[in-house]
Simulated assay, not measured.
Amino acid sequence: MTTQVTGLDGWTPEELAVPGAERPVVTAPHAVLSRAGAEVDPTSDEVVRLAADLIATMRVSPGCVGLAAPQIGVNAQVFAVDVTGHPKSVTVHGTFVLCNARVVEASRWKAGREGCMSVPDLTGDVKRAGRLVVEGTLPGTDRTVRLATDGFEARALQHEIDHCAGLLFLDRVAGAHAIYQRKVYL
């Protein structure tokens, strides 16, 4: 069953009923970052714990708006997103985790600057869809949702879906001229 949603119908990380643990974030060139993640059974206890760990790790990482399982060393198609409070966000669905997500519609392509916790020293200009529809399954359920979004949240979703496919933002830049040293603010 697929449900069309504009939000996630009240689903919250707390409904996972599993405390999350902060996990270390792996950085390039770690091999797990370049392998396509395995599809998962969203109803498994292991995936529910993974979802909780992704959220816990995101919450202690300043500026983090998304985190995928490969970034914590797990070869799986699971990611968390929360763009709440980010200055570039217009459409916001709050904190959510999707399993086995895929893009079903993409339009209004535009280049924008991206960074990544797994590539801490660089940013890059990446062309992404500004409007997006994604299907995925909520952890702890067999419920597939269809999520429509745009702008910064759409960019974050595509970035995390790429991680689950074994791609970094560096794989999407137009060339070396579109990669920049990350600015450090003291």
Score class of each variant (00 low, 15 high):
Ala154Arg: 02
Arg49Lys: 15
Ile161Asn: 02
Val104His: 00
Val25Glu: 06
Gly112Cys: 01
Leu167His: 10
Gly66Ile: 01
Met58Ile: 04
Gly85Asn: 13
Val48Lys: 14
His163Asn: 04
Ala56Trp: 11
Thr91Tyr: 01
Gly124Tyr: 08
Phe152Met: 07
Ser89Val: 09
Gly20Glu: 05
Pro42Cys: 10
Pro70Ser: 05
Val184Ile: 11
Val40Ser: 08
His163Ile: 05
Gln158Gly: 03
Leu33Thr: 07
Arg59Lys: 14
Asp142Asn: 13
Lys110Met: 13
Tyr180Gln: 08
Leu67Gln: 09
Arg131His: 11
Ala51Leu: 12
Val78Phe: 08
Asp125Glu: 15
Ala178Val: 01
Glu22Pro: 10
Leu33Gly: 06
Thr6Asn: 15
Thr12Glu: 11
Thr3Ile: 15
Val97Ser: 01
Ala174Trp: 03
Glu22Arg: 15
Gly175Phe: 01
Ala31Ile: 08
Thr141Ala: 07
Asp121Arg: 14
Asp125Pro: 00
Gln77Phe: 06
Ala76Val: 05
Asp41His: 06
Lys127Met: 12
Pro13Thr: 12
Thr57Pro: 08
Gly175Tyr: 02
Glu135Pro: 06
Asn100Val: 03
Ile72Phe: 10
Asp142Met: 04
Val133Ala: 14
Leu168Arg: 06
Val48Trp: 06
Gly136Ile: 03
Asp125His: 09
Ser61Gly: 01
Ala17Lys: 15
Val81Met: 08
Val65Pro: 07
Glu135His: 07
Gly7Glu: 14
Ala148Gln: 12
Pro13Asn: 11
Val103Arg: 01
Val83Ser: 07
Ala148Thr: 13
